[in-house]
Computed example of a mutant assay.
Amino acid sequence: MKAITLVAGARPNFMKVAPIIQAISEVQNQGVEISYRLVHTGQHYDKEMSGSFFEQLEIPEPHVNLGAGGGTQAEQTANIMVRFEQELIANPCDLVLVVGDVNSTMACSITAKKMNIKVAHVEAGIRSGDLSMPEEINRMITDAIADLFFTTSELANTNLRQAGISDDRIHFVGNTMIDTLLKQRPNFKAPPIWLKLKLSRQKYIVLTLHRPANVDEASRLRAMLDEIIDNTEGMPLVFPMHPRTAKILEDLNFRHDCLHMIEPLSYLEFNFLVENAKAVITDSGGITEEASIMGVPCLTLRDSTERPETISLGTNELVGTNPENIKPYLQRLFAGNWKVGSKIPMWDGKTARRIVEVLRVN
């Protein structure tokens, strides 16, 4: 029996792990001897991650929550490593599978390798080139020590080859986030704000901002919001707010009639808003992927991206972090001149099955 430990540290990680669990269950039903243990490191506390979260998205409850969240980058990483080591001693496995680029990804990879356990990295090889991002460091370290690499794009394959990884360890499988998106798309549901504002399709814009470069400096955040508001023709801006952003805007006492600041939404409610929006303005990497698959114009307020396929093939544009850059992109959007995305190879809802087929023989 091959035993696999699956690691998740934050809500998006569960979206990436869920299809893999479902694919493992499918082959188990076919008599394949493979088992898994789902470990939540507790890196992020998320009040949305209640029992209903797991039930709605058909994600099993984690076997254990290590409760290792909080503290500085170093404190959090150290806590995860100590507690994950104890978890692996108590529950040995043949392989540890990590996803994405959060601190849990790196910390659990290091811990497993030091215990001579193989590591598989889902979303391997993606790079932003920005070492000021903790996520970029997490990606690079994880890929430096992993054994199996599951990639979302040909560019990720190239990045790994240039780092000296042999082709037999690189597996171009696609994007498990898109597996979840395509499976759950029929279940999207309108959040209360939809009815409260009497929203309708393509008559509003979804806004999300959480990266320190955009929100930690109050004057920059204000300038960015002013520029967006001035160039969206009075259209409602629905802004589910990250707690960090909410605190800064509260201190600024920032208000505008067209800006509707709301609590974070569930996965099904948020993606309902994205699917029906005229556009999304964001600094999140994952949202650019989902918007591209749903054909929704996306403006990314970052200076670099680790997901260039959303620009070359999808509906995303890299606007940058200078507020003055925003106006021309919004002018193009309202003129009806936004690009139409094309299919992104392997982002077809079957990624997890391809991953499990590789795990069976490695």
Results as ranks from 00 to 15, higher is better:
M346F: 15
K113M: 14
L195A: 03
V319M: 12
P345C: 07
L97C: 15
A23C: 12
T282C: 11
Q202W: 08
G164T: 04
I110Q: 04
D147Y: 09
V98G: 07
P328L: 14
A124T: 06
G71L: 14
H210K: 07
K350A: 12
K118H: 13
E357G: 03
P191C: 00
T282M: 05
Q202T: 13
N187T: 12
L6V: 08
D143I: 03
V340R: 07
G285C: 13
F14T: 01
V27C: 04
L131W: 04
A68N: 11
C258M: 11
N231M: 09
I262R: 08
I344S: 00
N231L: 07
C298A: 15
P19F: 10
R185D: 12
F84K: 08
E306L: 03
G69V: 03
H171W: 11
P243T: 06
E309M: 07
P191A: 01
T5Y: 03
T305K: 01
A90Q: 15
Y204W: 07
P264G: 09
D94E: 08
K343F: 10
S312K: 01
N214A: 09
M177G: 15
L97A: 15
E269P: 04
E48G: 13
A90N: 15
S292G: 06
K16F: 13
S200V: 09
T282Y: 05
H171E: 09
L301N: 07
I311E: 02
V358N: 07
G349K: 05
C258G: 07
R201V: 13
G67H: 12
R244Q: 04
I59Q: 01
R201Y: 06
V27A: 04
K350S: 10
I293P: 02
G349P: 05
V64S: 14
A223Y: 09
D101P: 06
S109E: 08
F84I: 12
T176Q: 09
V215F: 02
N362E: 14
G69R: 03
K47F: 14
M241R: 05
